[in-house]
Write a protein that binds this DNA or RNA. Structure first.
Lengths: 196, 196
DNA sequence: TTAAGCATGTAAGGTGTTACATGATTGA
DNA sequence: TCAATCATGTAACACCTTACATGCTTAA
């Protein structure tokens, strides 16, 4: 049973407790969004497929005239999540436009390379700040939230986001300094165009 | 003029010098692949579109009966690359299955969380090693290669790949230690299922 | 009463990979 | 001669986002 990307996040979210499609979407946006996103256009059709495959089952939870279906894992579904969690991680994808620009800066716009690196650093620093605020907000308002669970972005994973962005900011900052100091030793970035 | 992801990498590659579609693909696989991939199924149609838009032009470079077209930037194309490089970086996408598994380990398979983190660490450590070997190989064989240019994976960018993977390995290693030591203070990872 | 949020879903369109199809050239 | 590599391209399919469509409920 090959699980699609969306199936993985749905099944994982349902492992803690049954939820509606809407709730799954909110949770994704609040937690895994930075490293594993999903949209309604993926979630609802995938819920249907998972039900057909017998991994989840829906039960009606309408309130009055507002329809609502909560989905829960079947025994087969629980087995599938466990198997997936056991299996070695494979997907790791990265798409970083700042890095691509830096890569080309040498041939397309040599003078600006350091500036580009600095902009990219600022961008990641900004994200780190936003995430730090979010974490602080979350920690202080903890009194009224539910107890720790997948319902809240895991502290550990949030910290990953913060620390990774800090690391990236630091790296690009150092790269900018290297580029400014040593225009003489271009490290492969500013040297294109020399060939012919 | 909105540039597609593939257009960006093609234009960037052509900024250094004219190349065939085949050469562009080889270069991508040798350099930007880790943070900006492209396949033939994207490259050839995109070359056609870019030519129609007047950003590049092809000239015949067939050798005997083997057809070959090299593409070069037009004045308009050069302007487009420069504009793109000037513009603030936006795309940053990450998809990390190991992190997702760790996120769910608490509710799906609590006992294995530390192990999962350790596997993920080993995976990134392995990539870092491979990249380090690649860099060493490249540095030693430098005598017979062409001089530095976009034709070779930039040292700076290669270093990024190495250092980032080392950072990731370190982070997951620390996470594994936290999980082993403090089963008592689960940091949001092993606590799901408590609600109800 | 009206806006915000809950809730489900589809259609269109873009992005991207894989596999296939074709054929030439080069070096072992 | 045979495999590897050069070289171009398409078709099928999967993936994913955005925008739209619909309608209920709750709180201001």
């Amino acid at each position: 049973m090959e699980l699609s990307a969306t199936a993985k996040v749905i099944l994982g979210m349902l492992a803690a407790r049954p939820r509606s499609g809407y709730e799954i979407k909110q949770l994704v946006d609040n937690s895994t969004r930075f490293f594993w996103a999903a949209s309604y256009g993926q979630i609802y059709p995938e819920l249907k497929r998972l039900a057909e495959a017998g991994l989840i089952e829906g039960s009606d939870a309408s309130q009055g005239a507002r329809q609502r279906t909560v989905h829960r894992l079947t025994a087969k579904g629980k087995r599938a999540v466990r198997e997936w969690i056991e299996s070695p991680p494979d997907v790791f994808e990265l798409r970083d436009e700042g890095l691509l620009k830096l890569f080309f800066a040498g041939s397309a716009d040599p003078g600006r390379a350091a500036e580009i690196a600095r902009e990219r650093a600022a961008h990641s620093a900004g994200i780190a700040t936003r995430l730090t605020e979010l974490a602080a907000e979350r920690d202080s308002g903890a009194a009224e939230g539910p107890p720790f669970s997948v319902d809240q972005p895991s502290t550990t994973v949030l910290r990953y986001g913060i620390e990774m962005n800090e690391w990236i900011a630091g790296w690009f900052e150092r790269a900018a300094q290297d580029l400014e100091r040593g225009s003489a030793k271009p490290k492969g970035l500013a040297a294109a165009g020399r060939r012919k």
